[in-house]
């Protein structure tokens, strides 16, 4: 089990990019933190959720 944005989620072993598209999230419009560290954009493809991970997915919308 991993925690994403504070909620337990059965996404162990899932690729970050797969999870983002399963949620309808555009990877160009998010920032991702796993266990307190930011995931760089060029590591999205190779990032796989591991049991016990705590992830924050910050979605951005336009306007400013």
């Amino acid at each position: 089990m991993i925690r994403i944005n504070g909620e337990d989620t059965a996404a162990d072993g899932m690729k970050l990019t797969e999870w983002l598209s399963s949620q309808g999230l555009d990877e160009k419009r998010v920032a991702v933190m796993i266990n307190g560290s930011i995931v760089t954009k060029d590591s999205y493809e190779s990032t796989v959720f591991q049991d016990g991970d705590e992830a924050d997915i910050i979605g951005f919308v336009g306007g400013g």
Partner: peptide, 17 residues
């Protein structure tokens, strides 16, 4: 303090890493 969502995500990811 950008206007565009992609610019926001790019900047936060870059600066924080």
């Amino acid at each position: 303090a950008f206007d565009g969502a992609e610019d926001k995500a790019m900047f936060i990811s870059t600066i924080m890493s």
